[in-house]
């Protein structure tokens, strides 16, 4: 049991982070806090992806002796999985963009209602 928890600890961390972010997204009343929630949520996903790339005994996915002579065999097992990193590079950009648009919308909301509290906005919209 202990082993089970320990050998998958990366997942537990990401799950906890994700739940925190998710709660902030749907449970908080302040719009900026919601956005922070989005970010925590997304960061959790990034951590999850990146952690799946790890390999015991693997190193950075930059091929050594790249400019050496002759043909020598490259062992995939000696480098960590590069694909999740690539995906997360893209995902990070997507998240930044979402953040930008979200903040822009929040500014637009603030201009109209002069507040960022959800219940106050709903009050004004009645």
């Amino acid at each position: 049991m202990f082993d089970f928890i320990l050998s998958k600890y990366n997942y537990w961390i990401y799950i906890i982070l994700m739940m925190i972010g998710f709660y902030a997204m749907i449970g908080k009343k302040n719009l900026v806090k919601k956005i922070i929630g989005i970010n925590i949520f997304q960061t959790a996903i990034i951590l999850f992806f990146v952690s799946t790339a790890a390999k015991r005994g693997g190193t950075l996915p930059i091929v050594e002796h790249a400019h050496g002579h002759g043909i020598h065999h490259i062992h995939a097992a000696s480098y960590v999985n590069p694909l999740p990193h690539v995906l997360m590079l893209t995902a990070i950009v997507v998240m930044v963009s979402t953040l930008g648009v979200a903040l822009a919308i929040v500014i637009a909301i603030y201009r109209r209602y002069n507040t960022l509290e959800e219940d106050e906005i709903l009050e004004q919209r009645k």
Binding site: M25, I38, F41, F48, T98, A102, I105, I109, I121
Partner: peptide
């Protein structure tokens, strides 16, 4: 803007869940 913000929250949850699904399948 407020409607759009709500949409953004739900849309982002949707997209993140989708991404998580992709991650699980990838794993």
């Amino acid at each position: 803007p407020f409607a759009s913000f709500n949409y953004l929250i739900f849309g982002t949850i949707g997209a993140c869940f989708y991404l998580l699904g992709v991650g699980y399948l990838y794993v």
